[in-house]
């Protein structure tokens, strides 16, 4: 990980979503707190319905864009 990029991929390059595991939700501030690869961070959750602790959110540019679906192995 360089000082500029996360996991070798620059955030600029847009098509990279980071998985955040939610550990706390502040509905008043519209943010979820959690960890990305073990690093504590927070993201905006205006674009996701009903975020709960334990959700895995896919985030980009400090904003959650999607909730990750449970994986169906073999599907």
């Amino acid at each position: 990980m360089s000082t500029e990029c996360h996991d070798e991929v620059c955030i600029t390059c847009s098509d990279q979503l980071l998985s955040l595991i939610v550990t706390g939700v502040d509905l008043d501030a519209s943010v979820a707190r959690g960890t990305v690869d073990g690093l504590a961070t927070e993201v905006g959750i205006e674009l996701i319905d009903e975020v709960l602790v334990g959700d895995v959110l896919l985030c980009h540019g400090g904003v959650a864009l999607q909730r990750s679906a449970p994986l169906e192995v073999g599907a």
Partner: peptide, 13 residues
Amino acid sequence: AIGFETTAPSTAL
């Protein structure tokens, strides 16, 4: 601000 539709929502918000 730079990026495709993945990045634009964060700018908009």
